[in-house]
């Protein structure tokens, strides 16, 4: 991967012990985010994307692997300056702001913690930040309960911007908002990115959002990346069967869009998603799964320019060269579950 990466993650693992069971929330993730790009991490609930975000933010400690910021390994305790350079906007606008603090105090926090402005210029700075995110400075001395969900997300974004960061981790920043507000917040994010040369790590389950804003996309399933690539490539010709399933489940409004959507021949079910398998974690839900899918986890393999995927029987192309035998027929096969029974 490119050495100019601003955030690099190598062999990252995070395990939780829950009542004697080991949950592998993040199970060997590698990624490199280039400065100025929007890197989207897509997956369904429980895929480990938020855990991955928390690891990058330093809120949680990895069980294994390392995270690098500008080529420097982030240790047990992040330096104050590095802390400032990686900020977050979270999903829930209701809890994003402390209900007992004024908007000004919330937005001002990074400025005062890092001494980015002398005290007498902070009010002015907060007004400026509020202007950047399209919030009226009239709200400065109000409490969060005076703001709508969209306004709160803007304030949360202003707080992140106040730290003058290089990277902002956006953890489902729009999924709790109305669709009309979503579009405005997304437009604002794109505008700020180009103005301040920000790098975004955009975490979402919403593919339609990703399609419009991200440069690259990583599809995450059960703690692993199953497919990564440039957004337009992955959307045009998804290879991994799970990516296929996700794309086929995006609701569309027009017939043309429906026509270009990948087909998914089997019912989309969560059934079996928690089954243990030595092989591909998606095998229990995959109609194309064969014996070898249950036997060993396929590794990420380059299938195109900067396009990686981990599937033995991918869509939109020949079967993986690693496998001898007939390619899948494309008909709906019987679910292959012998290996777990």
């Amino acid at each position: 991967m490119d050495n100019g990466a601003i955030i690099e993650v190598r062999g990252l693992h995070k395990e939780y012990r829950v009542k004697g069971n080991i949950i592998r929330a993040v199970n060997g993730v590698d990624l490199a985010v280039q400065a100025g790009e929007t890197f989207a991490i897509v997956g369904e609930s429980g895929s480990g994307k938020t855990t991955l975000a928390n690891l990058i933010l330093g809120i949680e400690r990895p069980s294994g692997g390392e995270i690098l910021f500008r080529g420097e390994v982030l240790g047990r305790k992040m330096s104050k300056d590095t802390r400032r350079r990686i900020q977050v906007v979270q999903q829930n606008p209701v809890s994003a702001l402390n209900p007992k603090r004024t908007i000004k105090k919330s937005i001002e926090l990074p400025v005062s913690v890092h001494g980015l402005r002398p005290p007498n210029q902070r009010r002015e700075r907060v007004a400026e930040l509020m202007d950047f995110v399209g919030l009226s400075p009239d709200f400065m001395d109000r409490y969060p309960n005076a703001l709508s969900g969209g306004q709160r997300q803007r304030a949360a974004l202003a707080r992140a911007m106040a730290a003058e960061p290089d990277v902002i981790v956006l953890d489902e920043p729009t999924s709790a908002l109305d669709v009309s507000v979503q579009a405005k917040v997304l437009a604002l994010l794109m505008d700020l990115q180009s103005k301040f040369n920000l790098t975004y790590i955009f975490i979402t389950h919403d593919l339609s959002v990703v399609r419009n804003v991200s440069d690259r996309i990583a599809v995450m399933y059960r703690g692993r990346f199953v497919e990564t690539g440039r957004t337009e490539v992955v959307f045009a010709a998804p290879r991994h069967r799970y990516t296929n399933m996700l794309l086929s489940s995006v609701p569309v409004v027009s017939e043309e869009e429906e026509a270009v959507k990948p087909e998914w021949p089997w019912e989309q079910t969560m059934e079996g998603s928690d089954q243990a398998s030595d092989g591909c974690a998606f095998a229990p839900r995959c109609p194309y799964a064969q014996d070898n899918c249950w036997a060993a986890q396929p590794g990420l393999e380059e299938v195109g320019e900067a396009h990686f995927m981990a599937c033995y029987y991918p869509a939109n192309g020949a079967a993986d060269s690693r496998i001898d035998g007939p390619p899948p027929t494309g008909k709906i096969p019987t679910p292959h579950r012998a290996a777990v029974d």
């Binding site: 330093g58 809120i59 400032r84 900020q87 979270q90 829930n92 926090l109 913690v113």
Partner: peptide, 17 residues
């Protein structure tokens, strides 16, 4: 685990704060 507590932690605020 409230958003604002995590946000303040990410900002680098002191434990006392």
């Amino acid at each position: 685990h409230e958003g604002y507590v995590i946000a303040a932690e990410v900002v680098g605020a002191s434990h006392l704060h």
